[in-house]
């Protein structure tokens, strides 16, 4: 994101070396030819122009170097943080796969919690008060609902999406489509059929958790300030949703049965 007024330094660093050196050279040349007694002033002006050009060029190189160094450092820190946050998620999922089938459901909840915590923590570096939520389908309820299994960050435990309500039907249709939902500003654009309260958030990203077996739920990330998220955040939510699909797949045997 660019800061307001961020164009000033690029304009100065591009124009001063050109204008300063040209004007300085002209003034010095004029001073050499001058016979009116202002030679000293012309020389002083010329030297000042050249000095400004050289100074801004050197300063520009220093700024460029520092910016490059800080970007490189930030990138390294980001990668290390990504490892630190996603590692427990992956390790818990791997451990879940080693367990007997009857205890995997408890692991699923722990895995979902590590996923929500990791997502919120990575995003919290550049987004104020984010909230990450993992939902799963509850087939025991009639009508069926999609319940929060884990959440991390701002606010209370999110409400379930219940089939038969406008909000619930919109969410269930959304995960059936297996597409990414990204709404940068909910005041300007909302999903079709959206009946959310928007309590405490003005932007959200939502990605279904699915495999070729079907859709298991979804991962959402929201924040109070519109425009908080970018494409990188969408990619991160997609990655977490994809990793959650591993846990959902290994949490069951192949012999699925229709809910009664």
């Amino acid at each position: 994101m660019s800061k307001r007024g961020g164009w000033i330094w690029p304009v100065i660093s591009a124009s001063v070396p050109v204008v300063g050196s040209f004007a300085g050279a002209q003034l010095i040349a004029w001073g050499i030819r001058d016979t009116t007694g202002i030679q000293a002033w012309l020389f002083a002006g010329g030297v000042t122009g050249v000095a400004a050009a050289v100074g801004v060029t050197v300063a520009g190189k220093i700024v460029e170097h520092r910016r490059g160094t800080s970007i490189d450092r930030a990138r390294r820190n980001q990668l290390v943080k990504l490892r630190d946050e996603l590692m427990p998620f992956a390790s818990t999922t791997a451990d879940m796969a080693r367990q007997p089938h009857d205890v995997r459901q408890a692991y699923l909840k722990t895995t979902a919690q590590t996923a929500a915590t990791a997502l919120r923590s990575v995003v919290a570096d550049h987004v104020a008060r984010p909230r990450a939520v993992i939902y799963l389908l509850n087939a025991d309820n009639e009508p069926v609902s999609m319940d929060s299994i884990a959440h991390s960050g701002r606010g209370e435990r999110p409400r379930p999406f219940v089939q038969g309500t406008t909000r619930g039907d919109a969410a269930l249709s959304f995960i059936e489509k297996k597409a990414v939902g990204f709404y940068p500003d909910l005041q300007k654009k909302r999903p079709a059929g959206y009946d959310g309260t928007m309590s405490g958030y003005n932007t959200y990203i939502s990605v279904p958790v699915w495999t070729e077996s079907g859709s298991y739920g979804m991962v959402t990330l929201d924040a109070p300030k519109a425009g908080s998220f970018d494409d990188g955040d969408v990619a991160l939510v997609e990655l977490v949703a994809e990793m959650m699909s591993i846990a959902f797949e290994i949490g069951q045997d192949d012999d699925v049965r229709v809910a009664e």
């Binding site: 509850n138 069926v144 038969g164 249709s173 077996s213 298991y216 045997d253 229709v258 809910a259």
Partner: peptide, 21 residues
């Protein structure tokens, strides 16, 4: 109602549901 919507929710052996188109 679910069938009309083009999907149904199936309970997996893991205890949670999976939405099938």
């Amino acid at each position: 109602a679910m069938t009309k919507q083009g999907w149904r929710v199936v309970k997996t052996s893991g205890g949670y549901g999976v939405l099938k188109s």
